[in-house]
């Protein structure tokens, strides 16, 4: 993953982006880690460090968050930039994909497995997978059925009650 900015990458896109835009952006990762580390240092101090003879609950988290803060601080300064991947137009797809997963969980909690699984398969097969409608619907229906049988009937997983259960149960 660290070499993808080298010549091995197809020169089709990203060359412009790679130039200046993410050169500043790439510092964000260690900065975030640094902030996280500092917050953890403060948090573990609040938990109570105790003594080495009688370690408190915060001592160990304190030690490891110091390590995190230290390494992150050094990375802010000397982070080698070459192992960063450039941001591409594909990033938008990814954010859409992540949002869709969040929506899936919400749907899952309210409507149960069958509806949410079917919708998610349709979305992922059609939009992200680029399948034809025929393949998408076939796979989504079949896939949902197989998954339902596998998890609910075979493994006995108690998914939240959903529309289908309401119909069957009613």
């Amino acid at each position: 993953m660290h070499g993808s900015t080298s010549a091995s990458r197809a020169p089709t896109e990203g060359t412009a982006d790679r130039g200046h835009r993410w050169r500043q952006l790439h510092r964000i990762a260690p900065l975030l880690l640094l902030a996280f580390g500092v917050a953890a240092v403060i948090g573990s101090r609040r938990l109570g460090l105790g003594e080495l003879t009688a370690p408190g609950p915060g001592l160990w988290p304190f030690i490891v968050s110091l390590l995190l803060t230290g390494t992150a601080a050094v990375l802010v300064l000397i982070d080698p930039a070459e192992d960063y991947e450039p941001w591409t137009r594909g990033t938008v797809r990814i954010i859409a994909g992540l949002v869709s997963l969040g929506v899936f969980i919400l749907l899952f909690q309210t409507f149960g497995f069958v509806v949410s699984a079917f919708l998610m398969l349709v979305l992922w097969l059609r939009v992200f997978g680029g399948e034809t409608w025929r393949w998408t619907l076939g796979l989504a229906v079949g896939g949902t059925a197989v998954m339902y049988l596998l998890f609910v009937e075979l493994l006995g997983v108690p998914f939240p009650d959903g529309l289908v259960d309401a119909v069957i149960g009613g």
Binding site: L101, I105, F108, L121, G130, G143, M147
Partner: peptide
């Protein structure tokens, strides 16, 4: 095709992680 693989792998992941503790929190 990679797209089919990804869609099903994600669904298995989500359903699978729920089944461990029967907890939607783990999905998040």
């Amino acid at each position: 095709r990679a797209g089919i693989l990804a869609a099903f792998a994600l669904l298995v992941t989500m359903a699978g992680v729920f089944s461990v503790n029967n907890s939607a929190f783990d999905m998040w």
